[in-house]
Amino acid sequence: MSLSLAAAQILTGLTFGMLYFLIAVGLSIILGVMNVVNLAHGSMFVLGAYMAYSFIGTGLNFWTALILSLIISGVIGAIIERVLLTRAYGKPLEQALLTFGLAFVMADVMKWIWGTSLYRINTPTLFNFSIDLGTVSFPAYRLFIVVVGIIIAIILWYMESKTRIGAIVRAGVDDREMVSALGINVRAVFTGVFVFGAVIAALGGVLGGPVLGMYPGLDFSVLVTSLIVVVIGGLGSWKGSFVAAIMVGLIETIGNIWFPALSMFLIFLVMILVLMIKPSGLFGRGEIT
């Protein structure tokens, strides 16, 4: 493989890695802080993309459609947390049934509204060109996704380590009850975390729209990949999600070229190896229970 082809493949792997990061980070923080495995998280990713597609269909540009889609996803996230999840805190089985059921309901609603065809969001004109890498060219839009992923990671780093709200969220992962006993409304923190997760997942969905497209079943396939990312990275850790998502993106892309039949197997192999060496994941503190 030539050097430029290898560079293009690595960039493709990074693009997918960043999309997985955007979906997994919300899942991971929701799991770490709220102890909820949100099995409807993949649905927020796809719903965000479908909504942006429809907004663009009404004549809005990509960026306006993106912002509208994120706002609506945040509102939907708040409603899910306040109306549904609030009844299931501390009941893991009920939570799993609730969020899994919600994923099916959302899948059917999306099929009802958008049908079963494959849709693709057009690449925004601003990034609709290619960067020449010698013998191959690389779409600028994919590079943009990588940059957005890195910016989100920097924002998360800043919020986590430099702000009081970041300290409260980390304390919530350590000992929720004690956080309440210090006068902090953990319920409000939960809502904020859940909305944040929903918005970041939708961001991944919309940005991924021109790359992955949208189709029935994508919600569950990104859910499985992001669960793997969370397990490898360690729950509640954005750093873990970042590193693990890039690993999974690269393994998947490179695996697809060299061992197409084995690429999913390779991801599971890495997950098993990480679990054998560090059961709490690369950056995790607690075990997944």
Partner: peptide, 16 residues
């Protein structure tokens, strides 16, 4: 004590 292990001493103090 229930100190938050993943917070620094200063963060433990100022968070609440």
């Amino acid at each position: 004590r229930r100190i938050f292990p993943s917070l620094t001493v200063k963060e433990n103090l100022i968070m609440s």
